[in-house]
C-alpha cells in the first residue's frame, strides 16, 4: 500500500490529493493536514444554504465541495486527515457499509487508545469517547475506487465552526455552538494541554500509518510524482471554482445541523393558515430535547404552548402525532388555523 505522508499541505491539496489518487485508480493511504483553514461541504449539500458564504469571503476562508458524503465542516491544521483509497474489487472491502466503517475506523480507535483516550466505535460511522464524537468521516465511490476519509482531532475551533454555518439567527448559532461543545471532543480536551503536547503531528501520523498497516499490509512511503501532480492540477481547475461549488444541492425546508450520529439541532418554520410556526429543538437519540415553539399564531390559553413544549421534551420523535392528538383532545385548547398537520410540518424529523 502506497503511503503519502506530506504533513501540512495547501488547503485545496488536502482535498484534491485523495480525489486525484482515486481518479488514477491508485490504492493508497494519504495523511495530510491543511496549512490554512477552509470549509468543506458534502457533495449533496447546497453551499448557499449550508454556509455563510459572505462571512467566509470576507474572512478569506475558502469553501470546497468534496465528491464524498457527509456534511459541512470547518477544517484547519489542528485536524489530521486520513484518506484511504481502495479499488472497488479489493477483497479487504466488506460489502456492508456498517462493517466497512467498523473495520476501517478501528485503526483510528487504536491510535486514540494508544495515546490514552478510551475511544470506541459507534455505528454507523462514528468514533466516540463516552458520548462525544472525536473523529469526522465521509465516504464514497470515485472512479473505480472506494474512498474513506476522516480525521484525528487535535483541537477544534467550535466558535468558527458555528460561525461559518448559515443559520437563520444568532440564537440558533449559539445553540449549535453549545451542542457542538457538548458532543464533539478533541485530543486536547481529553488529555489536557500538557499531555496532548507529547503527541505532535508527525508522531500521530506515524501511529495512523502503523495501525492502517496492520489492516492493509506494509506501507510504502511515496512522494507526489508528476502524474499525481498533473491530476491534482487538473482537478483543481474542475473543483476549485464557483461553478462546482454552486451546483445544485439538496434543498431542505428549515435548518438541520447534524452534530454527531444521534444528535442534531433543528430549526423549522411553517406558514400555516393561522400564522407562522417556528420550532427550535434538538433531536437526541431520536428523542426531542430543548424544545422551543414560537410564532405569530393565536393560542388559547396562552400557556398551552409551554405545555406542548414540555409534553414533547424527552419523548420519541415518532410519537409526535400521538402527543399532538393528546394535546388537543385532553385539554380545551384552541389554535385557530393551526392543526396537527401544521405542527407536524415543523416536528417531523
Amino acid at each position: 500500500m502506497k503511503l503519502y505522508n506530506p504533513g501540512k499541505v495547501p488547503w485545496d491539496e488536502s482535498q484534491l490529493i485523495y480525489h486525484a489518487l482515486a481518479a488514477l485508480g491508485r490504492e493508497a493511504l494519504s495523511l495530510v493536514s491543511p496549512a490554512t483553514p477552509y470549509v468543506c461541504i458534502g457533495f449533496h449539500q447546497d453551499a448557499e444554504q449550508e454556509v455563510d458564504l459572505d462571512y467566509c469571503r470576507a474572512n478569506h476562508i475558502p469553501v470546497f465541495r468534496r465528491d464524498l458524503g457527509g456534511g459541512a465542516v470547518y477544517l484547519d491544521g489542528e485536524q489530521l486527515f486520513f484518506q484511504l483509497i481502495l479499488r472497488k474489487d479489493n477483497p479487504l472491502i466488506p460489502k456492508k457499509k456498517g462493517t466497512f466503517y467498523k473495520k476501517f475506523l478501528q485503526p483510528i480507535i487504536n491510535v486514540y487508545r494508544q495515546i490514552g483516550i478510551a475511544a470506541e466505535y459507534k455505528p454507523v460511522n462514528d468514533v466516540i469517547v463516552e458520548t462525544r464524537k472525536i473523529s469526522g468521516t465521509g465516504a464514497g465511490e470515485i472512479g473505480d475506487c472506494i474512498v474513506f476519509v476522516g480525521n484525528l482531532i487535535v483541537d477544534f475551533n467550535y466558535k468558527m465552526m458555528a460561525r461559518v454555518l448559515k443559520v437563520p439567527d444568532e440564537k440558533l448559532r449559539d445553540k449549535v455552538h453549545k451542542t457542538l461543545r457538548e458532543n464533539l471532543s478533541t485530543i486536547r480536551r481529553e488529555l489536557g494541554e500538557k499531555e496532548a503536547k507529547q503527541w505532535d503531528e508527525s508522531s500521530l501520523n506515524g501511529l495512523m500509518a502503523k495501525e492502517f498497516g496492520k489492516l492493509l499490509g506494509p506501507m510504502e512511503p511515496c512522494e507526489k510524482d508528476q502524474e499525481l501532480q498533473a491530476k491534482i492540477d487538473d482537478l483543481r481547475a474542475r473543483m476549485v471554482n464557483e461553478e462546482w461549488l454552486h451546483q445544485k444541492g439538496k434543498r431542505v425546508a428549515g435548518r438541520d445541523v447534524k452534530i454527531r450520529a444521534g444528535v442534531k439541532v433543528v430549526h423549522k418554520m411553517h406558514k400555516a393558515p393561522g400564522g407562522l410556526i417556528r420550532a427550535d429543538y434538538e433531536v437526541r437519540e431520536k428523542r426531542f430535547s430543548d424544545v422551543c415553539l414560537s410564532g405569530d399564531f393565536f393560542c388559547f390559553p396562552e400557556e398551552a404552548i409551554k405545555w406542548l413544549e414540555s409534553g414533547l421534551e424527552g419523548r420519541p420523535t415518532e410519537e409526535a402525532p400521538d402527543l399532538l392528538k393528546e394535546f388537543y383532545s385532553e385539554r380545551d385548547i384552541e389554535t385557530p388555523g393551526i392543526g396537527i398537520d401544521d405542527w407536524m410540518m415543523v416536528l417531523k424529523v
Binding site: 449533496h44 458524503g69 457499509k97 456498517g98 454507523v124 460511522n125 465521509g138 465516504a139 464514497g140 465511490e141
Partner: peptide, 11 residues
C-alpha cells in the same frame, strides 16, 4: 447519478 446514505456517496 449519485445517492447518499450514512455519509456514503454511492453511484
Amino acid at each position: 447519478a449519485k445517492m447518499e446514505s450514512g455519509k456514503w456517496l454511492g453511484k
